[in-house]
Amino acid sequence: MSTVTGQAAFAGDPAVSPRRAGLLRRIVNHRADYLYVLPAIVVMLVVIGYPIYYTIELSLFKTPPNLQMKDKIFVGLDNYVTILRSASFRDVTLNTLIWTAGSTLFAFLLGLGAALSLHREFMGRGVLRALLLIPYVVSAVAASYVWKWLYHSDFGVIGALAVQFQLSDRPINFLDNLHSVLPSLIVVNIWKEFSFAMIMLMAGLQTVPDQLLRAAQVDGANAWQRFWHVTFPHLKSVSMVTVLLLMVANFNSFIIPWIMTGGGPAGASDIWITQIYNLAFGRQRYGVASAYSVILFIVMMTLGYFYVRALTRGDEARAG
């Protein structure tokens, strides 16, 4: 039996640690299971593992515009040092944090409000729910172009309405101003993704037991107290997952800022992902762009860890 042979081999080899021996033994014991998942693992290694490896490798090289990729120059950790020391990194990171925190917070709050409003039965609820889902299903590219024209600094509809209703004496400068561009983009992003939060939280609301809410009502709890002490604790897990998913999506968000401003003006709406794209495909700094990507990857993995923990905690709570 191979298992016995394996055990004998590990027992006789002092170089193999007990922990490693245990892992290998488990693999051998469950070799049929591992064979079943092997194709999936191979595919993952090819489509996920190799790009990650290549990105990390490339982040250690310099790629000047007059050299092909195969002639890249090894520079060690220089790209990371360059990035971390640059003023643009600080600006872009600050933009990314504002973008992510602003979009996530307000999309969640708006989604929560919409979910709570739509949780009650009322006439036209289905229609309203469908209408609120429209931003989520509209193509991000199409939405970006529409919003770009709505915001246009000279001929935008919003600016024209503001002038018409005498809210402003000239069209509002949304996208061509250092200070207003990022908030303007965040508004578009919130509009685009609050429906996602709404759907998640509506599903979460289904799990709040009616008898608890009724009992609280009998005990004299007002609407806010019922929400805060009964409903919200039940939404904690789904809220955590929703916020984490929104954060991951926003950290990786590309379409809206790229199409609407390309990171401008003067870098005022440049976030990590647009900066990475611009460095790689606009300026051919593949090495620096890869180093940026690795930093972003580490941040995403950290968020991913908390996401998995939140999911696992939910499972454990249910199991308990």
């Binding site: 515009p65 061509d176 101003n177 250092l178 003067a266 870098g267 005022a268 300026r283 051919q284």
Partner: peptide, 23 residues
């Protein structure tokens, strides 16, 4: 020069935007 596109499409517009936005 090999880096002409970077100068013309990035550095020159950057320069303009930095000045015009008063950054």
């Amino acid at each position: 020069v090999p880096y002409a596109t970077e100068i013309m499409n990035h550095i020159v517009p950057d320069m303009l935007q930095n000045a015009l936005t008063e950054k």
